[in-house]
């Protein structure tokens, strides 16, 4: 149908025979083995750490070494976690947290960030890729340099603006406003990078496709909507994932605008509280919460590999 998908089809066709008669002269299996071994050794600490994390989530204390053989394992931490409890079973009094609400809140923030980032950066990415205007290069440079400003210091100012705008918000809308503000503020941090990625995506689409539409008399906005957007779908998907992850793991914005200003919790603030003071914390619950926190993000990564590759590959091409 479109040129890109036809190109992709052709590439796939090229790939097939290479699997049979390897043109790349080195047998892939052997390369894989050697590299896997090397990377495995380099990544040994990581394997060890995450093994410990997952085992700890089932153990009666936080593991660190040989104690993985002596610890008592059970499903108790997970059960406690889903009941929203932060303490070991021996403690007769619990700090209750409603995990379902917490997960829902996390999804609202992450989903909201994803939507805002995708809309804003598919629009802007197109302009930077396809339109000639003054300050285009300077603006791109400026966008990447914004990253030099530490988020913690930015937070004070973002909060000041929040406080000032609060006066014009009716009491009944407050909670939705808090969510909206958190989402917009957090999304804005992602937008500069997303514009860069999205621009690269549009760069990959041949001009001919767009020209034919424009010659037929369609406006640019129409062309963008009808012709180009369908072709950057993989990019949109990948971008959404990146943005979703950013919203999912955000701590400082969520902490201030939702947790402090409204006692609305997300998974990240939940874990923050679970570890809390390391002097008295019951860490296996934190390990279970950490594992639970990893799962969706990891699944996202694995299931969206293909689209992700498309973004990154095209994304940062000049």
């Amino acid at each position: 149908m479109s040129l890109v998908s036809r190109l992709r089809l052709r590439r796939r066709r090229v790939e097939k025979p290479t699997a049979l008669h390897d043109v790349e002269t080195i047998p892939r299996r052997r390369t894989t083995l050697i590299l896997a071994l090397a990377l495995g050794i380099a990544g040994l600490p990581l394997i060890l750490l995450y093994l410990i994390l997952i085992l700890s989530s089932f153990a009666n204390h936080m593991l660190s070494g040989p104690d993985i053989f002596t610890a008592k394992y059970s499903l108790q931490n997970w059960r406690l976690l889903f009941e929203g409890k932060l303490e070991p079973a021996a403690v007769p009094l619990y700090t209750f947290r409603d995990l379902l609400v917490i997960i829902l809140n996390t999804f609202i923030v992450a989903g909201g960030v994803a939507v805002v980032v995708v809309v804003a950066s598919t629009l802007a990415g197109y302009a930077f890729s396809r339109m000639r205007f003054r300050g285009r290069r300077g603006l791109m440079e400026f966008l990447i340099l914004l990253h030099a400003f530490p988020g913690v210091a930015l937070l004070i100012a973002v909060y000041a603006i929040y406080v000032w705008t609060l006066k014009s918000i009716p009491q009944s809308m407050l909670t939705s406003y808090q969510f909206l503000y958190t989402i917009l503020a957090r999304a804005s941090l992602e937008i500069p990078m997303s514009i860069w990625l999205m621009k690269g995506f549009f760069d990959k689409i041949p001009w001919e496709v767009e020209w034919s539409a424009l010659v037929d008399g369609a406006s640019r906005i129409k062309t963008w909507w009808r012709i180009l957007l369908p072709q950057v779908k993989p990019g949109i998907a990948a971008l959404a994932i990146f943005a979703f992850l950013a919203g999912w793991e955000d701590l400082i914005y969520v902490h201030v605008f939702l947790y402090v200003a409204g006692n609305i919790k997300t998974l990240a603030t939940f874990i923050e509280e679970a570890i809390g003071k390391i002097e008295t914390a019951y860490l296996p619950i934190a390990a279970a919460a950490g594992t639970l926190y990893l799962l969706p993000t990891l699944l996202f990564f694995i299931f969206t590999q293909k689209t992700l590759l498309e973004t990154m590959g095209g994304g940062v091409k000049g």
Binding site: V119, A124, L146, A157, S188
Partner: peptide
Amino acid sequence: FFLSPALALVLVFYIIPLILA
């Protein structure tokens, strides 16, 4: 049309706070 959503967000939540900071 293409630039304003992104630039508005970056302006309100990034550049203004940055200058304010």
